[in-house]
Design a protein around this nucleic acid. Structure first.
Lengths: 219, 219
DNA sequence: TAAAAAAACAGGAAAAACCCTTTTTTTGGT
DNA sequence: ACCAAAAAAAGGGTTTTTCCTGTTTTTTTA
């Protein structure tokens, strides 16, 4: 096979990764030449003399996640096209991944035809955004102008706010959290107010759900 | 191929399902003879004259989930062996699935060898519990004796309690939830008190975390 | 069909969470 | 040392949550 396109697959779920590889290798025009279980593993294996054209990448992974890996690729090998792969169709995840430089996004319950289409679009057009993604992107762009959106905000939390946020994901009262952090209850109340603004929530439950959704705490 | 073992695969994520099937079909002794995207779809397709020996089944699915499908199989075709497949290694999920009649449990980041081992153990020994699962099972058995454990409790929730629990995973106040459910605020408070007891929590945050942890709501 | 059990509802009260404004303390930069 | 900005603390108020102890209504069951 002379001009087979080279693909890399990064996903921490072994069974899913192996299955995906087996599916892709059925296409005569594509070949999986590298597989990794997370970003770090991928970078270690990457050979500058033998780069993949497309990287099919899961978002949530241990060690080095999809966002970080995508950023790294953008800075080091911008010619490599990242196709993000996720179970979630959460708007924040999609937007954040695209911000990190992904050229396309498909969900895990897409079908084979869509995967194939995504590959060929990536190689010809340079990107692949299906309807779902386009809709989310447009929706998010509308918000970006007025309110500062979640995707950026999450990194601007101070150390104390982060600690408070983590401690809030429990049955402790704010009074108890204040004691734990050796801070006045009023200071804690200040952290709360600040986080409500930054995370765009209006209750402790909302705050906790944000923390879980964004992996700030794990269950 | 005379004595190939027949497998059914149930998973709502098309890419994962197709990949899995492609992997299994590589084994000469196994053959995927049925695929479905949820329990209902599976039951509709099931031909009593041509049953699979093993059903590889995801837990979280729309329409009819793994637990329900497993129960149905236990009642209707107990000879079919269910191998549960999940991303989560949450104790509650494993225990609940086994209670529903699953003969084995593997996580999605298992490797191919483990999948193959699981199949052959299912066919020869009749069940497959790896170390992870055994540990969880033993751990849970220890708890069952003294405290009434989560796994049982979760099934005893009434329809109203479940609806209330789901609605509580939001920024709504109990007052708003009461309006949504066309119930008095006091009734809602009754649900809350009952759930606090059943789930062994002492705050709304604890309740919400329980719901998320046990897949009662998804983020 | 009467008794028992479960579900719905209620009043009241204390604790916790939420919200707004203002003051004090700390910190970083010139 | 001084200023400006950020962090911490506080005061004082409203709303929501939590926790009692009940009554009424509906459903189940003996």
């Amino acid at each position: 096979m002379p001009d087979q396109h080279q693909i890399a697959v990064i996903d921490d779920h072994t069974l899913f990764r192996k299955g995906l590889i087996s599916l892709i290798n059925v296409f005569p025009q594509y070949q999986v030449m590298l597989e990794a279980c997370n970003g770090k593993d991928f970078i270690n294996q990457l050979d500058p003399n033998h780069l993949p054209e497309i990287v099919l990448m899961d978002i949530s992974m241990p060690e080095m996640d999809g966002y970080a890996t995508c950023e790294w690729l953008k800075n080091n090998y911008p010619q490599i096209k990242v196709l993000a792969l996720s179970t979630m169709d959460a708007e924040t995840a999609i937007i954040k991944m695209i911000r990190s430089g992904a050229k396309g996004y498909i969900v895990k319950d897409a079908d084979l035809a869509e995967l194939k289409l995504a590959f060929s679009e990536l190689l010809t057009v340079g990107f692949f955004y299906n309807e779902l993604v386009s809709r989310k992107v447009i929706h998010s762009l509308n918000r970006i102008v007025d309110e500062n959106d979640q995707i950026n905000t999450i990194q601007k939390l101070s150390e104390n706010e982060l600690t408070f946020l983590r401690l809030s994901c429990s049955e402790k009262t704010y009074q108890e959290i204040a004691a734990d952090m050796f801070k006045s209850e009023k200071t804690i109340d200040g952290y709360r107010a600040e986080l409500f603004k930054k995370l765009n929530v209006t209750s402790r439950v909302g705050m906790v759900m944000f923390a879980i959704k964004n992996g700030i705490v794990q269950l």
